[in-house]
Amino acid sequence: MNGIELLLRTLHDGEQALAEEFTATAELHRAEHEIHHVATDLATWSRAHAHQLATTAAERGLDLDGIPDAFFAGLPGTSPNTYPEHHGDPEPPLLLLRDLRDLHLAAACNSLHWEMLARTAQASKNTLLLSLTSRCHPRTLRQMRWTDTMIKNLSAQALMSP
């Protein structure tokens, strides 16, 4: 497997994981209407990205729906909604803040992979990959902006509440 194929697989797995993480956060924080609805929409974006990556990879003869690749394993966003047991169960505002942080880190990881793919596509003059990154990367950046905004809006109150 060459580097581009490895990156396509890694990005596909990252987008699938991010979709699952957004969905889990939406369900866990269903009472927070903005969180629930926006996270559900953003999960749809990541699922669409994964589908577009799989389609593009299939055109290169690569099946991305197989076993996930472990090349970039252990990066943020690979374990959605986990919390070390020795800390006990956090209060809902802290839980939400932690989940938003995890979402942000996973989206940032995907964003870096999109950027790597875009630079490679430019260097190799691969219009198919360049078109893919032009369609998908801006939405990943919007996912990051949303999580960043929510963290800024919620952190002071969540961290100062008893």
Rank of each mutant, 00 (worst) to 15 (best):
G3K: 10
L8M: 08
L8F: 06
L8C: 06
L11P: 00
D13K: 01
E15Y: 02
A17G: 12
L18H: 02
L18C: 06
L18Y: 00
A19N: 08
E21R: 11
E21C: 08
T23V: 05
T23L: 04
A24Q: 14
T25Y: 01
A26V: 06
L28Q: 13
R30V: 03
R30H: 13
E32F: 10
E34L: 05
I35L: 05
H36A: 15
A39K: 09
S46W: 04
S46P: 02
S46T: 04
Q52R: 15
A54C: 11
A54D: 06
T55P: 00
T56V: 06
A57P: 13
G66K: 14
G66C: 09
P68K: 03
F71C: 06
F71R: 13
G74F: 05
G74K: 08
P80W: 14
T82N: 05
G88D: 02
G88R: 00
E91A: 09
P93E: 04
L95A: 14
L97P: 02
L97Y: 11
R98M: 13
R98I: 13
H104Y: 15
H104P: 00
H104D: 14
L105V: 05
A106W: 04
A106I: 02
A108R: 13
C109Y: 13
S111R: 11
S111P: 02
W114Q: 08
E115F: 11
L117N: 02
A121H: 01
A121R: 03
T127E: 11
T127A: 08
L128H: 10
L132G: 00
T133P: 00
S134V: 10
P138V: 06
R142F: 08
W146I: 00
W146A: 00
D148F: 12
T149D: 14
T149G: 12
K152V: 04
A156M: 06
A158G: 01
S161T: 04
